[in-house]
Structure formats: C-alpha cells, structure tokens
C-alpha cells in the first residue's frame, strides 16, 4: 500500500485554479519528486497535503487515513513532516529551542535528547550554533534547521519544498547528500524541485505543468523524457 495517495486533487485560490485533478501515490521508501517550473502548482500540492490550504475537490490519504479537513498540526501528528518554502524557522527562538519545541512525545518512544542527538549527528553545524537565534543563521544553516526540525517527530514522510533554493551548489549538494542519508534511515521523501538534477536522488515522480500532471513515471523515464530535455537541458 502507498504511504501517501493523492487522487484527483484540485485547489483554487478564488477563481484561479492552481492545481487541477492531480493524482499520484508515494510508496514507502521512495524518493518521489514533484518537478515543474515556477507556478506549476508544486507548493500548493504540499500545502494542501499539510492542510494549510483547503482542497476544492479530490482526496488525500496517508497510511490509509483520510486527511480531509485535518488541521495542519494533525497532519504533522500523523507523521507527515513539511519543510516549507522559505524555511520558516522560528527566528526569535534559539536553534536548540527550534528543535526541542518541534518534538512531540506522542510520536515516538525515543526521548527528546535522542531526537536532538540524531539531528546533530546529521547536521553537526546545528550543534555548534545551538544557542544562537534561528534568525541569525545563514541560508544553508536555516535549511538544515528546517529539515532538523521536521525530523524531530520521526516522520514517516518528509516533504521538502525546494530545499536547494538560494543555496550555493556546495551547500545544495550537502543538503541532497543528507536527504539520501535520511532516506537510508527509513524515511520516505516527497521532494518538490524546479531543478532536474534532483532526479539523481529520485526513485519516481511526476512532472507538473500549469497545475496538471504532464508526465508520471520512474526516474529514468522522467530523465529521458522530451519534457525534461527541453525544459531543463536545453537540447
């Protein structure tokens, strides 16, 4: 059974339809990518899954559970973590508090210190900056913090909205490297990207254009598609 199943999802802002009849399923252990240009509806899909925007129609099931009408905190408590566009860390809280406030005892048997240790092992930089305010971190460090915060609840599914945006190529590589580690540790990943280089990491995914699914398939069929060649490689 799929970990996440989205069927015929449509989302509109007023009269503007941002997402139209999108369906896809993310299997356990997958790295599923939502690839598409700016304005293709990628962020809106993640926000609908998290309950931050209401769906106009369609269904979203996580682990067989209907997420319709769930508040964002309930989606998070169901094990679906969201690393939002623009990171959205708590700027006035220290790095340590950003992480500890995101720990929910009901999600896991592991004590908070174990969760903190796991995050610091993945991102040693955060341990060094533990007492610093979140708002004073560099962009790359904020991205690490946003991912670390999402991991504090031992999610089953980690959704990331353009984690490489605005990062130097070196830092972007580091972030993707860590995502590979997170996946190896058993977390399923749903990755939103504009950049087709993320296909290296992917198992499968869909390509979105103007709010609709333009193409769905495994990594290789996406990479070799006319669509990706034209849009991203310029050939």
């Amino acid at each position: 059974m799929s970990l996440l199943e989205v069927s015929d999802l449509s989302v509109a802002y007023g009269d503007l339809v941002a997402v139209r009849q999108v369906s896809f399923a993310v299997d356990e252990g997958a790295v599923f990518v939502l690839l598409g240009a700016n304005g293709a509806g990628k962020t809106t899909i993640l926000r609908a899954i998290s309950g931050l925007v209401p769906a106009r129609s369609g269904r979203i099931f996580a682990d067989g559970r209907d997420l319709q009408g769930s508040a964002p905190n309930q989606v998070a408590r169901a094990g679906i973590a969201h690393v939002p566009e623009g990171r959205q860390i708590f700027a006035n809280l220290s790095v340590g508090d950003n992480l500890s406030v995101s720990y929910l005892a009901e999600r896991t048997e592991a004590p908070m210190t174990a969760a903190l240790d796991a995050v610091f092992q993945l991102f040693p930089r955060l341990a060094e900056r533990r007492r610093q305010l979140g708002g004073t971190l560099s962009g790359g460090e904020q991205q690490m913090l946003a991912i670390g915060r999402a991991l504090m609840n031992f999610p089953k599914l980690l959704m990331l909205d353009e984690p490489s945006l605005g990062l130097s190529p070196v830092l972007a590589d580091l972030v993707f490297e860590r995502l590979a580690t997170i996946r190896a540790l058993g977390t399923t990943i749903l990755l939103v990207e504009q950049n087709a280089t993320c296909l290296e990491l992917a198992t499968d995914g869909i390509i979105l254009a103007n709010g609709e699914v333009a193409l769905a398939g495994g990594r290789d069929s996406l990479r070799d598609s006319e669509f990706v060649r034209r849009a991203y490689l310029g050939i």
Binding site: L52, P72, A76, A81, P84, I89, V101, S102
Partner: peptide
C-alpha cells in the same frame, strides 16, 4: 503556520 506544521 510553521508552528502548526511541526505539530503545535
């Protein structure tokens, strides 16, 4: 919004 998506 960030507080909600970490489950608060």
């Amino acid at each position: 919004e960030a507080a909600e998506i970490v489950g608060l």
